[in-house]
Nucleic acid binder design. Structure first.
Lengths: 375, 375
DNA sequence: TGCCCGCGTTTGACCGGTCAAATGGCGGGG
DNA sequence: CCCCGCCATTTGACCGGTCAAACGCGGGCA
């Protein structure tokens, strides 16, 4: 009867019911469907709940409802020396968003590609999670069709690229093309006439997207693009450095270099330093993702901040959407101007908002008609 | 009867039992206590499990056993501009370690200090987690006594500092003192005679620990310590920069600066650059944690790598230990020498191992005698 | 006055496992 | 030859919720 024992001996719904002199179901309703109860009864039950410090047992509820209240997130294995793109801040935002609806994030590890799919299958089979949030997606990510086929709920942070018209599931992404265009606009406004680009080889859709933004803006301003773009294999400082040397070795070297990631940008800065130049003064440099790196280095790196809170909130909304619906949401990034490149944003907030809404509409409400396959 | 329906309609233990022509309990035993079954029966059941692709329902199991199979990890809210110390790699290692015993990590958010305790209480009351792994601990962390009092399982990444003799729960930590001593040894061996220190004010035990290591080594080598140490309020680049300026403004400025974190070290580097010097050439600089920052900046930063995999494995072992036992484990960090300071490690692996074992023993096997309070 | 309807509440069954006690078959010792 | 004990296996109860159907009750309408 002491405080201790009450707190520890796991108060059950039946005990609350007895305490409030009602049935178990009434207590259950007080929690899940209070509108069904008469106000007086509701008050009585709530009082009992508070007095006994009752908290429903999550396993029991999951067992009944069939929903675990958990969302799986595969923590990407990153090679040493690879600075991860704001994963920690995204995870925080995602956790916080989930908690607003009483859910949580469950972490797991899995090898990339096909090999990892069995982990996803396992978690679903065990009913350990209700769905997944994917990150580090690439174009033709095997997880997209695999999960879609099995009617497993998920949201992809990164487009699902339903190129062939087949719907591949909901996604949230940041408009890398718009961000890179805006960077080029800003650099051009500051007098830069030759703007290089350090991108990434391979299937990553985001890389291509950002490159398109750079290219379109350059073309629009009449700036050269031939030979001004390098595609690196992996996201490492050394690769960024090599790419920058290639660009700076040209007869007419760029005066500004737009990199697809903060890590590449640091490689670019290193190349500039090695050649006796000063990043931000002799060659403007910009990165992407606004990782902690960006503000910490000297000179501080101009980068594109991903709106992690909005991304997380959108991911949650898409997860909660009824099964069978598929939607893509494109959010704007924010250019954070620092010493490595002075960018005064030319996009007004209204432009960005409009662009976002348009992309949003484009994908909304598409329905998959695989309903009949179910039974 | 198709593949699809088998995979989706949640195969239950009873179905497996029917398929194998045995009772439900036999199937349960095949999974949890195979030694109880006759080999022939076991084989038969396993065959049935494989054929039906059976995976036990996690909620149901949790409900019966009272164990959720989940460990809570509070994702620390970090202010903008604060580069987090290897949280992502630690989380990966922790997840992987948990998976070796069929557990997972559940993320949640909570405000720091007393205010956040209710989140921990909630998760336990809901039986959502079996225990916690704490990080970002400080001396007199309210979570340590709070969790201990309530007999809630946890492991602290960071010492629990049971100064008053009262046991505060198990912990794993990295021997910051030894690492800083070794750095000073290395710097001294390379001819440095004045070695500054950038530490942190406040209650963080780790800061004091590392400072002790620096101080002891300096004293041992007969190097000056008066006025050579600065304590910053928060872990930001700007603070590190200010601290470095203070040190370098002295009549006899240090030729090397040991910083307590990579972020501080970057601040120090910035200060050196601002004064027209070159970090690593004019002033040696070292950091701590070996965050992705360290290898990415120019010059690359010498830092101390935390053995995240071992930390995670140890955390798991301590969590699995029987309730009522309390143990502390001190692991060695590894100095990663890069351009910002040339350190050839003087500690042999044997020294480190021995030191570790000693610390390990020191705490092992302490028992709390709060057993009688339980019933 | 009697019947039906709807609301608020209660009851029994169920989710899918595990625990503990009961069962049956077999070999060994008295 | 019978009884005992051990082992492998089975059975019933239970974990703590939710669902769906059943219940009692008062008001509106015929």
């Amino acid at each position: 009867m002491t405080q201790r024992s009450i707190r520890h001996q796991a108060v059950t719904l039946r005990q609350v019911a007895a305490h409030a002199a009602v049935s178990r179901q009434t207590v259950s309703n007080a929690i899940n469907a209070p509108h069904r109860l008469e106000p007086a009864t509701l008050a009585k039950v709530i009082k009992a709940i508070d007095e006994l410090r009752y908290r429903p047992n999550r396993s029991a509820r999951s067992l009944s409802t069939g929903s675990a209240g958990l969302i799986g997130y595969c923590i990407p294995q990153r090679s040493v020396g690879y600075a991860n793109s704001m994963m920690d801040s995204f995870l925080h935002a995602l956790s916080a968003a989930m908690e607003t609806v009483g859910r949580h994030v469950l972490l797991f590890t899995a090898p990339p590609g096909e090999a990892g799919l069995s982990m996803y299958a396992d978690l679903i089979a065990q009913r350990a999670v209700d769905g997944f949030v994917l990150s580090d997606t690439d174009r033709d990510d095997p997880r997209h069709p695999w999960l879609t086929e099995r009617d497993i709920r998920f949201v992809s942070f990164g487009r699902t690229w339903p190129e062939d018209g087949q719907e591949r599931g909901s996604w949230v992404d940041v408009d890398g093309a718009a961000a890179c265009s805006a960077i080029v606009d800003g650099l051009h406004a500051n007098g830069h006439e030759r703007i290089g680009f350090v991108g990434r080889r391979g299937r990553l859709g985001a890389a291509k997207d950002r490159r398109n933004g750079w290219r379109d803006a350059c073309v629009r301003h009449g700036l050269p693009i031939a030979g001004m773009s390098v595609a690196c294999p992996g996201d490492t400082v050394a690769n960024g450095e090599r790419a920058a040397h290639l660009l700076l070795d040209r007869p007419k070297p760029p005066t500004a270099i737009v990199a697809i990631s903060d890590v590449f940008a640091l490689g670019v800065m290193r190349a500039v330093i090695d050649r006796g130049g000063r990043p931000g003064t002799d060659v403007a440099v910009t990165g992407f993702d606004d990782t902690p790196l960006a503000s910490a280095v000297t000179p501080a790196l101009t980068s594109v901040r991903q709106p992690v809170v909005e991304i997380a909130a959108t991911a949650l909304r898409l997860l909660e959407a009824p099964t069978g619906t598929s939607e893509g949401v494109l959010l704007p990034g924010t250019i954070v101007s620092r010493d490595s490149a002075d960018i005064t944003t030319t996009l007004t907030p209204a432009d960005v908002r409009q662009r976002n809404v348009a992309a949003h509409r484009q994908q909304a409400g598409l329905k998959r008609d695989r309903q009949e396959n179910k039974k």
